[in-house]
Simulated assay, not measured.
Amino acid sequence: MNNKEVLLISNYFPPEKGAAPNRMHTLAVNLNRANYNVHVVCPMPNYPKGAIFKEFKGSIYKKEVEAAGTIHRLWLWPSNSSNKFVRLLSMLSFSMSLSFFFLFKRSPKKIFIQYSPVFVGFTAVFWTWLLGKKRILNVSDLWPLAGLEMGLLHKGAYYSVLEWMEHFCYKKSHLVVGQSEEILTHVKARCNTAPFLYRNIPDFNPPSFMETSLEKPITLVYAGLLGIAQGLTEICSKIQLPDDVELHIYGAGPETDKISKINKKNIVYHGEIDRTELHKTLQQYDLAFIPLTNRIYGSVPSKLFEYTRLGLAVIYFAGGEGGKLVETHQLGWNIPVSDFDALQAFISELSIEKLKALKKEEVQKKAVKAFNFQKQFNNFVKALESL
């Protein structure tokens, strides 16, 4: 196999929806355009509902060829259970399928590995290390540290095993790609592997629009995973929206049922819609809302780059490096994470005058200038070709 071939390994890939599958699909499509022969290994589509999509049910292995390259979909036992043991079994099932893939299928010299979940990332790094491949590790979240900060994991024997696996992945890789400066700082403290900053910048043409006169009600929008980490259920129960402010929610996930049952006149759940349609829909709203339950070291929600490219100023309630980016590039308002009093005060004081300070066209121009996908991708290809 020649130098212009690469294999991407990911736990998430379209037709699944969300930041993780979108990120991997964008990378695959652009590598294909850069004349790479791209292969992708992923599980049967099941995210975020934890059930195999109807058209893939009953399959153990499925091969497809599309704009992103050749897609190899492997069997797994799906689950989005809140039970940690059940989730572990699901991850191990894909790890087992991935092991068989490496044993019985030829693979390119260069392998791009999505690190999270830890067991999947470790399995990929372990086998590609044994097979003498060039390993590029993509770290978008710092597991198991993120699990500890969210209260999903606790220090002990199991946590120590996960940490050992994490460090193994870093040390045995030839290049570590991190989506934030915090991630790269964390990695550099644990190994000498070359780092590369690769933010989750989307690749779509920024839409043109005409500024319209602002009027009430002021509309906020959240679109994405409805999970424990985002904390929307808690936020909706604690925050009282003024009569002239509405919150509109799009997406799916573990908290879908709770959110769909919220009985407040100015909180509206719209369900899940296609990404292309979503982009058009989001432009009708005034502000985007980006929350996390706790500040997660290393995490910069990809919604920040997507919303602002659409021209939406953001209410950033997630802390960390993302908040600094909002402030540095003047893309919205950074509210201290978990400070519900500060969030309540901000929303209670929302006004048309405050919105006029960050017009959509200005926000979009700043975002496009600060976060250039093509420039970042071209630099990544240079790093890839140097391996």
Rank of each mutant, 00 (worst) to 15 (best):
D341I: 12
K188G: 02
G121Q: 14
G178E: 04
L220F: 03
E234D: 12
F56Q: 02
V314M: 07
L310D: 03
D341A: 12
H72K: 12
S95T: 05
E321P: 10
F346V: 02
S160G: 07
A67D: 06
E5Y: 01
S260C: 08
G253L: 15
L384V: 15
W333R: 07
K366Y: 00
L98R: 07
L247H: 10
S79F: 01
T26D: 03
Q179M: 15
G50L: 04
A67N: 03
P78V: 06
Y307S: 06
S116K: 11
L31W: 07
K188L: 13
F126L: 14
L131I: 00
L76A: 00
P78F: 07
L197S: 00
P15N: 04
P336T: 08
A67H: 01
L358S: 09
H154T: 14
Y61Q: 09
Q330V: 02
L241A: 02
E353C: 04
L137G: 11
K359V: 07
K369T: 06
K261P: 00
A194P: 09
L92C: 02
L241F: 11
V6I: 15
K258V: 04
S351C: 10
I273R: 11
P202V: 10
S351Q: 12
L142F: 13
I267S: 06
T128V: 09
L131K: 02
T256H: 15
E215V: 09
Y198D: 11
R199S: 14
K62N: 04
F119I: 15
Y316N: 07
A20F: 00
G320T: 02
F13M: 05
L175P: 14
T233F: 08
K354R: 12
L312G: 04
C42D: 01
N372L: 10
P21R: 01
C236F: 02
H167K: 14
H39M: 11
S180E: 09
A68R: 03
N30S: 14
I267Q: 03
H167V: 13
P207C: 12
L282V: 04
P117N: 14
N200K: 13
F377T: 12
H25P: 00
K365I: 12
E181H: 15
A146M: 13
E353K: 04
R106W: 07
L214Y: 13
Q114T: 05
D286F: 03
I113R: 10
I235F: 11
R73Y: 04
F85Q: 09
G132I: 10
A223R: 03
R309G: 05
L384Q: 07
F204I: 01
L137Q: 08
L282D: 03
L278F: 13
F56Y: 15
H270N: 15
K216V: 01
T233P: 08
S213L: 04
F305D: 02
R135M: 03
K188W: 05
P217I: 06
A318E: 11
K366A: 13
R87L: 07
K63C: 10
S81D: 00
L98Q: 05
A68L: 08
N35P: 13
N379C: 15
N192A: 14
L287D: 02
V368E: 09
K216Q: 04
N11S: 08
I267R: 04
H279R: 15
S180L: 10
I347V: 10
T281E: 14
I71N: 03
F56W: 11
A194Y: 07
S90N: 01
E349H: 09
G231I: 01
Q230T: 09
G319A: 11
P43N: 00
C42S: 14
I335W: 02
I136G: 02
H154N: 11
